[in-house]
Write a protein that binds this DNA or RNA. Structure first.
Lengths: 354, 354
DNA sequence: ACTTTGTCTGTTATCGCTAACCTCTCCGAT
DNA sequence: ATCGGAGAGGTTAGCGATAACAGACAAAGT
C-alpha cells in the first residue's frame, strides 16, 4: 500500500502481466499477507468477511490463477486420480469414465486419463509418468501388468483399484465382472437355445485379456456339453463395424454348417448382424448371433443383438467410490473386491428357449 | 551411509518405504549428491559413465519415481498440454486425440484432457483447473468461450490453439474447418441432385456451435436457391442411433412430401438410414440422406451415408504441431490460422448428379 | 613448472505455496 | 482487575526438485 511502483500510465485499464501472477501479487494488491490470501482462496481458517471480500476482489480483477504445482508441493496433497485405460475409441471406456466422473464430481478429486493402447510397455510408461505427479489414487484397467508396473502400484502408497475384470490377483482393490463366467454363461444360453455349430469372432485377442478370458470360459462351457468351437477368426485394426461384416462373410463361406456366431464385442457383432440382414440370412432361426458389452448403439439396430451387459458405468462408479472413500478417510482398509454380475440380454438374435 | 536407522528385520527382503522416496534417498544409496542424481535421471550435463550406472542402479532397485511436482516448480517447466473438449463419447474427439497424440509422442509433451459437456460454465471451471497446473500449451475446441475463459487463455502466457472451427475470432492460433461453408456445400450438393423438400435433424443444437453454424450455412445456401428448410427436428441425449430412427420416423410422418434429410451428425444419420432401409423407403431415389463427420462407422453400414469428412485427425495433428513448435522454439510467432477443407463424400444416399 | 582447459561433481538459493506456530485484540466470565 | 479463549491475521520453515555458479582434478599446452 505504501510502496508505489512506477507504472507507465497508458489508456489501457488492464496491465497485461508478463510474469505470471503469484500470491504475492494478490497480497500486495489487497494489502494483507500471502497467508491470508491463501486462506481466503482455499476457504480455510478464520478470515473476516471484509478481508475475504477485499482479497477475492483483488484476485478476480488481477485474474489470479493459483499455482497448484506449488500448492501440491507444499501440502503434499494432489487432488488427482490417475485413470489408466487401454483405449478411448471404443464405446466402453468413455462410459467407465462417465461413472468415475459422476462420483468424483462430488469430491475435490479430478480424474486424469492415460491410454495404453493395450501395450504393457506403454502401460508401464504411462503409469510411471502419472505416478510422478503423485496422484491420490489410481484406477487401472485389468489385472495383468508387468512386474515393474505392479511394483510401482504397490510402492505408490495410494489406493489402487483395478477395474473391469475380477479373474486374477489384484494389487489392492478390484471392481469388475468375471469375464470367464460371462463367456460360460453365454455358451450355456447358446447351447440351451439349440445351436450346436458355433463360431467365434474376436478382436485384438492376444492383447485384450478380457476378451481372451471370455473366450476361455466360452470354450470351457461348450466343452462340458461336448461341443467344440467350430471355427474362429481374429482381427485387429480397422473399423469394427466393417470388420464385423468381413469376418462374418469369411466365416460363413468357410464353414457352411455354422449356426451361431459369438463375437468378442458388440461392434463387430453389429457389423455381422447388418451383414446377415443384407444377405437375407434368417436371424435367429438359421443363424444366431451374440456380442458382448451392451453398448447403447445396439438400441438403434434393426434387430437387437444378444449381448451381455458389462456394467461399465457401475464399475466406474464403484471404483471411484472406493478411491474417494479411502482418500477422505471414510474407508480405512484396502483390498476390497466388488464383483458385478453381467446380465444376459437375449435381444432378438438368439432363438427363444426351445 | 553412516547414520543407521533402526529397521525391524523381518524375513522380507524388500523394505516397503512408508515415506515416498526422494532424490535424497537415491543420492544416499548411491553415494553422490542429489544434484548428480538429478542430472543422471534427466540425462543432463556431464556425468561419468561409472557414476551414471551406479545412480541408475540405485534408482531402479529403490523403485524411485521422480516427483514432477517439485521438478516443475523448480524449473518452471511443465510438459503438459491441456486439451479441452466438449465430449468424449461421440466418435469425433477420440480421433482428434489420436491426431494430437501422434504428434506429441515424438516430443516430451503430454496431453491432459478435460471435458466440458458443451457447457460454458463447465468449460470455465475445467480451464481454470487446468491452467492452475501451468501447462505449456492449450488446445481447446471451439471459438466460443465466456469472457472469463478468453481472459484466462490470453493471460496464461502459453500458446493456445482453438480447434475444429474457423468461423470466428481466435484468441491465438486456430485449426479447423468452416462449418458454415460445410453446411453451404452440402446444401448445394443436395439441390444439385434435385432434392427440394429438405428437412434438418439436429443434436444438442443450442450448445453445439459447430452444428449451429452448419445449419446456418445450410439454410443460407438453400435460401439462395429460393428454398426453405421444410421441417426440422432437434433432440438431445439418448443413443444417437436410436434417436436418429425416432426423429426420422417423426419427421417423415409429419411432413409427407419431404425428399431429403440432412442430419447434424453421422450417428443420427446412420440411425435414419437404418430406419429407411427397414421401412423399405427407396434411398436415394425417393429420399436422400446426408450426415456430417465422416466417422469410420459408416463403412460398415449397408449403404454408405453421404457425409462430409471433417478431418478430425488432421486437425489434432496440426494443432499439436503448432503447440510443439511454439514450445520448442521452432515456431516463434503466434496467431497461425489453418483452415482445412472438408471433403464431400457422396456415398450412396445422394442421387447421382442429374 | 605453471597456467589453461575441460570433465565431473558439489553448494546454494530459489520456485510458489501451505503447515504449524505465534501474536495481538477483544470480550465475557470469574 | 485478571484470565481464558476465540477470532483474525502474521511469521517462519520447509515441500522436492533444478539453475546457476563454484570447486576439484586430470590432461594438455607453453
Amino acid at each position: 500500500m505504501t510502496d508505489k511502483k512506477i507504472i507507465p500510465m497508458t489508456d489501457d485499464i488492464e496491465i497485461p502481466p508478463r510474469r505470471p501472477l503469484t500470491l504475492r501479487d494478490v497480497s500486495e494488491a489487497s494489502g494483507v499477507s500471502e497467508m491470508t490470501v491463501s486462506r481466503v482462496l482455499r476457504n480455510r481458517g478464520d478470515v473476516s468477511l471484509a478481508t475475504r471480500e477485499k482479497v477475492l476482489k483483488a484476485a478476480k480483477t488481477l485474474g489470479y490463477v493459483p499455482n497448484k504445482i506449488a500448492g501440491a508441493l507444499a501440502s503434499s496433497r494432489v487432488n488427482l486420480v490417475a485413470v489408466i485405460i487401454p483405449s478411448m475409441s471404443n464405446m466402453v471406456f468413455p462410459e467407465v469414465m462417465t461413472g468415475i466422473s459422476e462420483v468424483l464430481d462430488d469430491t475435490p478429486l479430478q480424474p486424469v486419463v492415460g491410454v495404453t493402447n493395450y501395450l504393457p510397455e506403454k502401460e508401464e510408461e504411462v503409469l510411471f509418468e502419472m505416478l510422478s505427479w503423485r496422484p491420490s489414487g489410481v484406477i487401472i484397467a485389468g489385472l495383468e501388468h508387468s512386474d515393474a508396473s505392479r511394483a510401482m502400484l504397490k510402492a505408490a502408497g495410494v489406493p489402487v483399484v483395478e477395474i473391469m475384470d475380477v479373474d486374477g490377483e489384484p494389487v489392492d482393490a478390484v471392481v469388475g465382472i468375471s469375464h470367464r463366467r460371462a463367456g460360460r454363461e453365454m455358451a450355456r444360453a447358446i447351447v440351451k437355445s439349440g445351436y450346436r455349430n458355433i463360431g467365434f469372432l474376436g478382436t485384438k485377442m492376444p492383447l485384450d485379456h478380457r476378451a481372451r478370458k471370455r473366450f476361455e470360459g466360452f470354450t470351457e462351457a461348450l466343452a462340458k456339453e461336448g461341443i467344440e468351437v467350430m471355427d474362429q477368426e481374429f482381427y485387429s485394426g480397422g473399423s469394427a463395424l466393417a470388420k464385423g461384416r468381413e469376418m462374418t462373410e469369411t466365416m460363413l463361406q468357410r464353414s457352411e454348417d455354422i449356426d451361431f456366431l459369438y463375437y468378442s464385442n458388440d461392434m463387430i457383432g453389429a457389423g455381422g448382424l447388418l451383414y446377415c440382414l443384407d444377405q437375407g440370412i434368417k436371424v435367429p432361426s438359421d443363424l444366431g448371433l451374440a456380442g458382448f458389452n451392451g453398448v447403447e448403439l445396439l438400441d438403434g439396430l434393426p434387430r437387437k443383438l444378444a449381448t451381455m451387459d458389462s456394467g461399465r458405468k457401475a464399475i466406474g462408479r464403484e471404483a471411484a467410490r472406493i478411491i474417494a472413500g479411502r482418500i477422505d478417510g471414510s474407508i480405512t482398509e484396502g483390498g476390497q473386491r466388488i464383483e458385478l454380475t453381467p446380465k444376459l440380454e437375449p435381444g432378438e438374435t438368439l432363438r427363444r428357449y426351445r
